[in-house]
Amino acid sequence: MTQPVLNWREDLKTFRERMGGLTEPKKALAKAQRDARKAIHEALKAGPLTIPEIAAKSNLPSNKVLWYIMAFRKYGQVAEAGQAGDYYRYEWKEASE
C-alpha cells in the first residue's frame, strides 16, 4: 500500500470554499437533524415505544420519526424491542449521549 501524503485539514478548507461553504439550508438541515435526534432520544428515555408513540411525544411527524429511527437503528443507536399490536417498539441503546 502506498502511504498517501494528504494534508486533509488544508484540503478541507479549499473543499469547503469550492462547494460553496456551509450554506443556510445546510445549517438548517443540520439543526433540524440534531433537534430530531434529541427529541427522539428524550422520548425513548422512559422505555421502548412505537413510531406513533414517539411521534406524539416528540412532536415530529410519524414518517419522519420512522426515517430517523431506522437511521439510528442502522448505525447501532436504536434497536427493535418487541411488538405492540400492529407496530414494532424501539429502544435507545446508548447509555448516554
Binding site: 412505537t50 410519524s62 414518517n63 420519526v65 420512522l66 429511527i69 431506522m70 400492529d86 407496530y87
Partner: peptide
C-alpha cells in the same frame, strides 16, 4: 426497516 412497514407510520 428490517420488515415490511408502512412509510407513513411504521405500521405492519
Amino acid at each position: 426497516f428490517g420488515h415490511v412497514l408502512r412509510p407513513s407510520d411504521g405500521k405492519i
